[in-house]
Amino acid sequence: MMDTYANPWAYRAQWAYLLIIVGALMAPVFYTIYISFNEHGFGAQIYDFTWDWYVVLFRNQQIIDSLSWTAYLGAATILTAVPMGLIAAKYYKRTRHKVVFVTLMLSPLFVPADILGSALLVYFKNLNRAFEWLGDSLGVTWFYGWFELGFFTALVGLILWTVPYAFVVILITMSRYRVQQTEAARSCGATAWQAFWQIEFPQIRVGVFSASAFVFILSFNEYTRTSLLKGGFDTFTTVLISHMFNTGMSGDSYAMGGLVSVISMAVIGAVLVYTLAKAERLEREARAKAEPVAA
């Protein structure tokens, strides 16, 4: 809302500035999507709309497989990183050493992706060797391959990368939650779990859903750590980038880029729509129930 004493042109200039920034950021993304529907590809003089590049994409078994792995990794990352972020946020509210705790929680973000990825790569390789040595010493083969590069190691890399974000997103929602409500629930006879599930969770649910969406997008788009730690399988992003490196940009490259953008925006859009719709519904219900009551 505009301040009645403010200069209306300054107000319009702020909006124009915002739109220019968003436009500058999003224009290449939309251009990629636009090109992906051109039968003649990038740089062509003429534009003929086609779905062909997407058809080519979805007929490519490697793409289908990589999409599946990406989905599995995304789901596994959500199932681990979001609860970890939630527990960390709950701990943050209780601890007196907040600065130290936040620094530790966010520290994975301060390490460049290639450094963290290669460090984990070395770590897993050495761990794998140590367990193989342990197995050999004990005369068993059971320890072989525990930390060989694969789904688990890629997942660990993604968890390290996404937990700080999940923590921050949930913490923002949780900051409005009053711990007296948990105590009130306990005082009414609720166990610690009932107090969390019935009283606290409904109030931080939006943050948890937002964190899940954010974690999925981060895991979907992650290249450096995943490519170093994934072992034998491919994700959609690693296929896209190796495709760009090996064969250059082609029509199906733009289709892949368009697909990533559409999925990301769809996930974020869904969360936003859900959050806004829920907030509006709650407000509507509240207004309906607020009809005057005869004293």
């Binding site: 409500q181 009130a184 005082s187 009414c188």
Partner: peptide, 22 residues
């Protein structure tokens, strides 16, 4: 004993109603 295991109940200074419940 935990609060829910005691024959007590508590009224807090403020902010203790469950805002998502009628």
């Amino acid at each position: 004993l935990a609060p829910n295991e005691r024959p007590t109940s508590m009224v807090f200074q403020s902010y203790a109603l469950f805002p998502h419940m009628s």
